[in-house]
Each structure stands twice: as structure tokens, then as C-alpha cells.
Amino acid sequence: MDLDYFKLIDRVVELNLDEKRITVEAQVPAAHTIFEGHFPGFPIMPGVLLTESMAQSSGWLLLGLLKFERMPFLAIVKEAKMRGFVSPGSLLTIEAKLEHEGSGFAVTKAKGRVGKELKCSAEITFGLAPFPDPSMRVHMDAMANKIGFPLQAITHD
């Protein structure tokens, strides 16, 4: 995780386009200024950042399913549940699955775990739009490469 730049996904573990599912990993930093205030003496990952981690994981899934032809943007978060504390230094594994795709939107369900312990879950709705600028697509391709997104899985036949 690079909290300063809001890059919360470190690595794609698996992308299964047939099952419409992705698994990613995010290494929570062992130390960061965010933990100084959340909470002094008992540092934990803020729930809003856990929710954003699930949204980013879902976004990468949608980018793969859409073959990077449209960009997902966060529209609605439902049923977000924080089920346990995520401590600094934890390895967070997030799985997201497409539940529904409609005209101009998609709904995913995501879960975050540390080891086998469920820590968070949410249903997330995204709007789907063209990339606003070609440079944004270039940036997303570079980020995909950095996190090990299997671009070969989405190449056109």
C-alpha cells in the first residue's frame, strides 16, 4: 500500500474472467502517520481505507472484464461492514466478484481477510464511463503493469 498516493492494491494474485472474480493483496504499512491518530496507542487501519481497498480491487476486476475500454468509478457503497481490526503490518487479501452489470453500471461484492479471518465486506456499485483522457488510460496501463495485472488475459482476439 502507498497510502500517500491512495494506491491501496499491491499485487493481483488471481484474475478469473470466466468466474468474474479477482483476488489481490495489499500489505498494510507497518508504520505510517495515519496510525498516529487512528488510534494513539492502538493503531488500526481506518474502515474508510478498507472500503477503498475493496473498491479498488473491484475496479481492477471491472477494468479486466471491460478490457480497459471503459473506466469504473465509485458510485455507491452498500452494506459496508468492518468485522475486525486490521493492524499495521498485516497482509490484507481482498476478493471481489461481479454480481451484476447493467446499462452503464456494475455491482460487485468484496471481502477483505487477514489470513483466514474476515475483516471487512461491502457491496459496491460503479458507474462505467469512457476514459476521460487518453493519458488516464496510459496511467492505468502503467499501474496494471506495476501490480501484476495480467494484461494478456484481456487482449482482443
Rank of each mutant, 00 (worst) to 15 (best):
L91M: 14
I22W: 07
T23Q: 08
L63H: 10
E95P: 02
K67G: 13
S58H: 01
T51E: 09
F35L: 06
L62S: 08
R70I: 11
M45T: 05
K81G: 02
I22Q: 01
A26G: 10
F68N: 11
V77G: 04
E52S: 05
Q56K: 04
P40G: 11
A26R: 02
F42C: 12
K81F: 06
R70N: 11
S87T: 15
R70C: 12
I34Y: 08
L50T: 06
L50G: 00
L49A: 04
L50A: 12
S53A: 14
K78S: 14
V24K: 05
W60Q: 00
P40R: 10
G37D: 13
G59Q: 06
E95M: 13
I76L: 14
G64C: 13
L74R: 06
S53N: 09
L91P: 03
E79I: 09
L92N: 06
K81S: 08
A96R: 02
I44G: 06
Q56M: 08
P88V: 03
L63K: 12
G41Y: 08
E69Q: 15
F85N: 14
S53Y: 06
F42V: 13
L49M: 11
L50P: 00
F39D: 06
V77T: 11
F35H: 03
G64W: 00
S58W: 01
E95S: 13
L61V: 09
Q27S: 12
